[in-house]
Design a binder for these strands. Structure first.
Length: 302
DNA sequence: GTCCAGGGTATAT
DNA sequence: ATATACCATGGA
């Protein structure tokens, strides 16, 4: 552990490390990374090999420290971090828009600098989205932890165990019963294994999906998959395929947030959910992410 | 005990 | 096409 590579990733002026760190800290059951002393530690696979790194705030952006000296690790980690935190996106249009939008203004002001934190791995995004269907986020984290600790590759470093997310190939070979033991519903076990097979067989890739063109074409392709409805398709578009406009209109958290910011005495109807977001077109994923964040920060205030 | 949670499918009209 | 039942666990 004595050899390290270090690099500084420059971040946009409107990027806030602490806002993103707070989002990343939202669950004690998160198992894909660890947070200690304002630093994020994580293992990822680069060209099939595990690479351990940490990232922390730096006056010029984000300082990344990579364990070991594997060739190509630095550029791979940098690519990962840029994708993870959506560093390539210019948020100025969204921030200008949010100042004109009463329903967004407070949420965006309070959490300014937050990015749509991504899930770069396609299979991980599908599993996370499927697990999250119709249950509390807290329980989804518990299920994800069981799944990762059971089928993921463990990497021990400095007394901490990190995990690589289970590969689609691994999960494609499982029987549904193996997942069912983790208290994942029988239906979701089938969905997860089905998606794992599509990805393992190369029929479902990020590049292939992005090559389909616009969000509507991708959503159409995704909703043709068993277990993937409009909510899940838009969730994948938002967290993995990086559409700034994906809109999971059926989302209960979004409904609760809209109820709050619009001062409704009930949850909005689906047509209302669509209508509220009409002026946000182009940025509905960002609007959704900030509204989710606002809702949870309001909940913490009591 | 009841209700709800980051939905979706299967089945019945 | 649209409505309803069901999933399954855990926290409020």
């Amino acid at each position: 552990m004595s050899i390290h590579q270090q690099l500084i990733i420059r971040t946009p002026d409107d990027f806030s490390f602490s806002e993103n760190l707070e989002y990343l800290s939202r669950s004690a059951d998160e198992c894909m990374f660890h947070i200690q002393d304002e630093k994020v530690l994580r293992a990822i696979a680069i060209e099939g090999k595990p690479v351990l790194f940490r990232m922390e705030e730096h006056p010029d952006g984000i300082m990344v420290t990579i364990s070991g000296k594997a060739e190509g690790a630095a550029s791979g980690v940098e690519r990962f971090v840029r994708d993870w935190l959506d560093l390539g996106r210019d948020l100025l249009p969204f921030y200008e828009l949010s100042e004109r939008e009463p329903l967004l203004q407070e949420a965006v002001r309070r959490h300014s600098g937050l990015r749509v934190v991504g899930i770069p791995d396609l299979f991980e995004t599908f599993v996370w989205a499927i697990l999250g269907q119709q249950i509390t986020v807290a329980f989804a984290y518990v299920l994800k932890r069981r799944f990762v600790e059971t089928f993921g590759q463990a990497i021990d470093a400095d007394g901490v165990t990190h995990y690589l997310f289970p590969s689609a190939e691994t999960v494609a070979a499982l029987e549904p019963e193996a997942l069912r033991e983790l208290k994942i519903t029988a239906r979701k076990c089938e969905y997860i294994i089905g998606v794992a097979r599509l990805i393992a067989d190369g029929e479902l890739t990020k590049e292939g999906l992005l090559g389909l063109g616009g969000d509507r074409a991708i959503e159409h392709r995704l909703t043709a998959i068993r277990g993937i409805g409009p909510w899940t398709a838009n969730y994948v578009l938002m967290r993995c395929l990086r559409s700034p406009d994906a809109y999971p209109a059926a989302d209960v958290g979004l409904h609760n947030a809209l109820k709050l910011v619009a001062g409704l005495d009930r949850k909005p109807t689906l047509p209302e959910v669509e209508a509220f977001a009409e002026p946000w077109k182009g940025w509905r994923a960002y609007a959704t992410f900030y509204l989710w964040r606002y809702l949870s920060s309001e909940a913490e205030r009591g």
